[in-house]
Design a protein around this nucleic acid. Structure first.
Length: 578
RNA sequence: UGGGGUGUCGCCAAGUGGUAAGGCACAAGGUUUUGAUCCUUGCAUUCGUUGGUUCGAAUCCAGCCACCCCAGCCA
């Protein structure tokens, strides 16, 4: 792709941009990992991927591509209580949809359980871990506080032999959940709370989506992640800022394990590359204005029925964005534009909107669709006549071909495009005025017909037949409006989506607060919209001219009519003026 | 009040001692049979702040201020 070739060029000239790429370029220059770059994307299968994850995916997979390395997909599945196969499937699909391919097979932390168990025995044997009988509440009390050191567990100096035996009995399922835990023996007085003898293993009599009921004990994230990275020969373990305080623990665990045994267990096999420990580097996670990415809140929206599932087009999930009409290319470009840094920031959602408009402007074929139809009768256009116009699918890309658009005596136009009391600057149709029918003739409105209640029923217009593909003589017609032949239009349902939150920076403390901040107009259903017939034949993404970008939603059914979701409206400087 | 971080244009973000990239947003023009796109132009004498070092500082040093993260047997 163009992006990666640009990146490659930048690298070749020593212009790696951003602190992570610079670090990697530096590592490579020093031969730190024998020229290898191996990253991983490690989601926990406890929810759906969202735009924030896309940033991490683009970073990890992108770096692997740029440096000729690899990126693993590894499910960090050490907590069976919260995880499920449904989520692993959805996550894999979203990553593939984004256009990334992981290296080799999908990995699971759970597939390392046996090795993890063995390494734990090693730590115990070295006096670096012990089985503790403190309850979870007691462990919390013994841990101390941010300003006070912790106090050692009474089990801290338990004999290694005894701990080993207890650990085996834990593994055999002899104890109840929470009765015992395996803890690292580090420093109860450390100013870094993560180093105050963190729990390495806990008892959980729970079935796991990958390993079933084989294990009644499960390793914790801190213990699992670093070893999994090492086993997969990850060179650069990239994660978000909140794990920064965990880095000393990440390093401690690897440093206290026997390097040779780690190396042997790793997947480097008989490769000539030397075994090198992975290193963790943190970056700021993505935040977006008018958007909430917290899993807890997203879940609440779904379960509270505020949206129509995880793939509701208003959701910032990749599944939702896909249904909304976002494209992988747009999302990747967006992630590229956002950059990767350590400063916590909130990206303006306008950047995301720009990315999708840019993509769709270039790629989406054009069509005409009238959202709120107003009847127009062309008095001087013969009733039996059907003129077929051939219009470009894309104004700037003739290679995309043409479509046939029928013109007949009766049309639908947008009711917004006619005004009896036009505001200053109004360029559309007015009584007695002229306007161009997009791709067709200039018409003049000479009569407004009303219904009993005084509303506008239809417009009577006449066509200037000397204006097809040319300007009218002696006057200029500024306005251009979209239209559809009444008899041939396809009634469709349009679903208009807007941002879910009213506040630029929604910062709810509770789920109730989230519900209070929702935009009541985030969804509008328009039935009986009139679409030009050719647009139903194929294609997913369209620009409905003068309106916005829409995507066909084949999963949705709306009264038998085709359904289109509005991805994003066109920029509208006229709307902005009003 | 312990520890770990971060502060460069309205929003992101380059920059790593030699005199402030780029994108988004915004504004003003131009082109246009989409009030779209596209094109042009403008948009930080200044890098949280105060001092210091230096011929020279966003970049080095010190103090101060603001904000974020950490006391799950979650990840």
């Amino acid at each position: 792709m163009n992006d990666s070739s640009q990146a490659a060029a930048a690298l070749a000239t020593g212009e790696a941009s951003g602190f992570i790429r610079q670090m990697i370029a530096r590592d490579l220059a020093r031969g730190k990992h024998a020229g290898r770059v191996h990253t991983r994307f490690p989601p926990e299968p406890n929810g759906h991927l969202h735009i924030g994850h896309a940033k991490s995916i683009c970073l990890n997979f992108g770096i692997a591509e740029e440096y000729g390395g690899h990126c693993n997909l590894r499910f960090d599945d050490t907590n069976p209580l919260k995880e499920s196969q449904e989520f692993v499937d959805a996550i894999k699909q979203s990553i593939r949809w984004l256009g990334f391919r992981w290296h080799g097979e999908v990995r699971y932390s759970s597939s390392y359980f046996a090795q993890l168990h063995e390494f734990a025995r090693q730590l115990i044997g070295k006096g670096k871990a012990y089985v503790c009988a403190l309850s979870p509440e007691q462990i919390r009390e013994y841990r101390g506080s941010l300003t006070e050191p912790g106090t050692p567990s009474p089990w801290r100096d338990r004999e290694a032999r005894e701990s080993l035996a207890l650990f085996e009995r834990m593994r055999a399922g002899e104890f109840a959940d929470g009765a015992l835990s395996l803890r690292a023996r580090i420093d109860m007085a450390s100013p870094n709370i993560n180093m105050r003898d963190p729990v390495l293993y806990r008892i959980r009599h729970a079935a796991h989506h990958q390993t079933g009921t084989q294990w009644p004990i499960y390793p914790t994230y801190d213990y699992t992640h670093c070893i999994s990275d090492a086993l997969e020969n990850i060179t650069h373990s990239l994660c978000t800022l909140e794990f920064e305080d965990h880095r000393p623990l990440y390093d401690w665990i690897l440093a206290n394990l026997d390097l040779d045994s780690l190396s042997e267990a790793s997947s480097l096999g008989d490769s000539a590359a030397p075994f090198v420990l992975p290193e963790q580097t943190e970056f700021a996670k993505l935040r977006l204005s008018y958007t909430l990415l917290g899993k807890r809140f997203l879940r609440a929206l779904v379960e509270g029925g505020k949206v129509d599932g995880w793939d509701d087009p208003r959701m910032p999930t990749l599944a939702g964005m896909r249904r909304r009409g976002y494209t992988p290319g747009a999302i990747r470009n967006f992630c590229e534009a956002v950059g990767v840094a350590r400063a916590e920031s909130v990206v303006d959602i306008a950047m995301l909107e720009h990315a999708i408009r840019e993509d769709l402007d270039h790629n989406a074929p054009r069509a005409m669709c009238v959202l709120r139809p107003l009847k127009v009768v062309l008095d001087n256009f013969p009733a039996e006549r059907r003129q077929v116009l051939r219009l470009a699918r894309h104004p700037k890309r003739p290679e995309l071909g043409e479509r046939e658009v029928p013109l007949t005596r009766e049309l639908w136009i947008e009711s917004d495009d006619f005004s009896e009391s036009p505001p200053a600057g109004f360029k559309r149709l007015v009584a007695g005025g002229e306007v161009r029918l997009r791709g067709a003739y200039v018409i003049r409105c000479h009569e407004v017909l009303r219904d009993e209640s005084g509303g506008i029923r239809e417009l009577r217009c006449c066509v200037d037949f000397d204006t097809l593909g040319k300007r009218p003589e002696g006057r200029k017609v500024k306005g251009v409006i979209h239209w559809v032949a009444a008899d041939e239009a396809k009634p469709v349902e349009l679903r208009l989506y807007d941002r879910l939150f009213l506040h630029e920076n929604p910062a709810p403390k509770s789920v109730a607060e989230v519900f209070g901040e929702l935009n009541p107009d985030s969804f509008e259903r328009l039935e009986n919209c009139m679409l030009e017939p050719a647009a139903l034949d194929g294609g997913e993404h369209f620009q409905f001219e003068r309106v916005g970008y829409f995507v066909r939603d084949r999963a949705a059914v709306g009264n038998g009519a085709a359904v289109f979701n509005r991805t994003i409206h066109l920029r509208d400087s006229w709307g902005a003026v009003r």
